[in-house]
């Protein structure tokens, strides 16, 4: 019914987009190409296409930032990259250890890039390899093998500058926050910050590291004066502090309410059903991730 109100070209454009929807990248800032992940669960058939991933093109070479949740998605990203640039791929940067960001690494292996991540990422990958192989076998090659889960060649302790030729990237590592090995990538030229999962938008933040650590990192990130931020999940924003405030709103509520319940002696299983409710309608996939976040916050604060 509403369709008749749309301009004639709309429908056609929509079809074209659907045909391409298999894999699209969008240039969100000059030389910064993002493929936006879908807000689906880890059980969904499209669970390998959850995260925002992409690449940054300089004059000399290209850096990939996260590679998707399967070798298949990694290959599609590779192909999309090759449609934009023939320059060598010098770096593959991973913002953290989660499957939806790293399992596509293998698709870039033949380009012989330097794989880079937080100094703690190598350990994290090594420790997760068996788990990835077992639970995400279908997202690897046929047959799957441990060599297909690629960790970093180079670890970033604090910061690292990379030169792509006319484009300098500033990589920054953080202490335990969303995970134990978070890292951000700043394209200084366009003032575009790839936050990895330190920033979630629309999709509910998921906690694996430390909620108190994450809150500190949020405060740190709020000081960044960037023109554009690419979150790990959800749309880009030109108001990073506001987006971080939304995320902080959720995490701080968890901390405040869990602390209150710990004080009263409310057990974890009850806290899981009570904490955070004012935020329930603000986030997608709440049902899938919220209770787990409460458990983690509860355990972290229990021995505070």
């Amino acid at each position: 019914m509403g369709l008749s109100l749309l301009p004639a070209g709309w429908l056609a454009a929509g079809h074209a987009a659907a045909a391409d929807a298999a894999f699209a990248v969008q240039e969100v800032a000059p030389g910064n190409f993002v493929h936006f992940g879908r807000h689906v669960t880890f059980e969904d058939p499209r669970h390998d296409d959850i995260a925002n991933i992409g690449f940054i093109v300089g004059k000399r070479c290209v850096a990939v930032v996260d590679t998707g949740g399967s070798i298949r998605i990694g290959r599609q990203l590779h192909q999309a990259l090759r449609e934009k640039s023939r320059l060598p791929i010098c770096y593959v940067i991973n913002t953290h250890v989660h499957v939806d960001h790293v399992l596509g690494n293998y698709a870039f292996k033949d380009d012989k890039p330097v794989f880079i991540g937080n100094a703690a990422l190598a350990e994290a990958i090594r420790a997760n390899r068996e788990f990835f192989l077992k639970d995400y076998a279908g997202d690897l090659g046929t047959p799957p093998g441990p060599e297909q889960v690629i960790g970093p060649d180079q670890g970033v302790e604090k910061t690292l500058e990379l030169d792509l030729g006319g484009k300098r990237l500033l990589l920054k590592s953080y202490p335990k926050a969303h995970t134990s090995a978070d890292l951000t990538v700043l394209d200084e030229e366009t003032s575009t910050l790839w936050t990895g999962d330190l920033l979630f938008r629309e999709r509910i933040p998921s906690l694996d590291g430390s909620v108190l650590g994450w809150l500190k990192v949020i405060d740190e990130l709020k000081k960044e004066k960037v023109r554009l931020a690419v979150p790990g999940h959800g749309p880009v924003t030109n108001d990073l502090p506001a987006a971080l405030d939304e995320e902080r709103g959720y995490l701080q509520l968890l901390v405040d309410e869990v602390r209150g319940m710990l004080k009263e002696g409310v057990p974890m299983e009850v806290a899981m059903t009570r904490v955070g409710m004012p935020q329930a309608t603000k986030w997608l996939l709440w049902e899938q991730h919220h209770r787990r976040n409460v458990i983690r916050v509860f355990h972290e604060l229990e021995w505070e």
Binding site: F42, E43, V97, H98, V99, D100, A120, E123, A124, A127, N128, F131, D135, K176, T179, S180, A181, S206, D208, G209, G265, P267, R292, W303
Partner: peptide
Amino acid sequence: ASGGCSDPFGGDIYEALKTAGRMKFRTVG
């Protein structure tokens, strides 16, 4: 079981054992 993703222990096992045996007790309600 939820499956889902994991993040391994990035800390130090010796650190983890330092506080082993500490206890807290309270009554509730």
